[in-house]
Nucleic acid binder design. Structure first.
Lengths: 120, 120
DNA sequence: GCTTGACTTCGAGTGGGCTCTAACTGGAAG
DNA sequence: CTTCCAGTTAGAGCCCACTCGAAGTCAAGC
């Protein structure tokens, strides 16, 4: 799979895909005879996981740290689990926060609706 | 209330408070005889609303638009309600997304836990 | 009356995460 | 054989949202 196909599959641009590789979030992708990147399904799976971490707000720095651990093999399983647990807690906190803010948003919408009907 | 007191109350820095004013997210704050900002409770309430919009992911650009509408008075009530409704939908979508990603995170944690116990 | 310290403005700097340009290369289609 | 297109690299540029530095002002405490 070429870089542009991979980009489409995972919802990133080719720029970003190359940048992720350069930043060490992805181990060097295999090349064809002409030196062009060829993405395997494994590469895609990894990228899809990364996009999930990314959009749940994990900084690139932390994703790199996680990628480094993953490259080190099974000895880092526990460390990786702890990273995920900590991150899960942050995501949970974020969801609660959003739900709190949502209440205010809904209240505001309601008030606006009322004010439109019977202006004070 | 001084700028630093206000900053502490709303959880922003004094830099950010001044910058928000400069960017038109806040209408010019009243000054004392020495030209120093004096924040009223109204100012604080507005800032707290802004921080909620901000942390639910509304871009500063959109917050400015909303602030402009608010300054124009009651004629923009419906427009402001629509902004909030659109934003609420985005927040809801964001929460669903986070919950999806949370599932993957939990699955990963489980798998890591199992692999730690009985390595393959 | 002098020092201190919190304020003022203006403009420059920072960090994160991409995003793009320039110059080049290699393989496929006509 | 030429054209074309999708790749390649290194490095610069961009956008966002702050964040800070410099230089100056003012009022309160000693």
């Amino acid at each position: 799979m070429t870089v542009s196909e991979a980009a489409e599959q995972v919802g990133l641009t080719t720029y970003t895909l190359r940048w992720y590789e350069q930043e060490g979030l992805v181990e060097p992708v295999g090349r064809d005879s002409a030196g062009r990147r060829r993405y395997t399904q494994q590469d895609l799976d990894w990228l899809i996981l990364l996009t999930r971490l990314r959009r749940t707000g994990m900084p690139v720095r932390d994703m790199r740290r996680y990628a480094e651990l993953a490259r080190e093999g099974d000895s880092t399983l526990a460390a990786r689990r702890r990273i995920f647990e900590a991150h899960r807690d942050r995501v949970l906190a974020r969801i609660s926060e959003l739900e709190e803010d949502l209440k205010v948003l809904n209240y505001k919408i309601e008030v606006y609706g009322k004010m439109e009907q019977e202006p004070c």
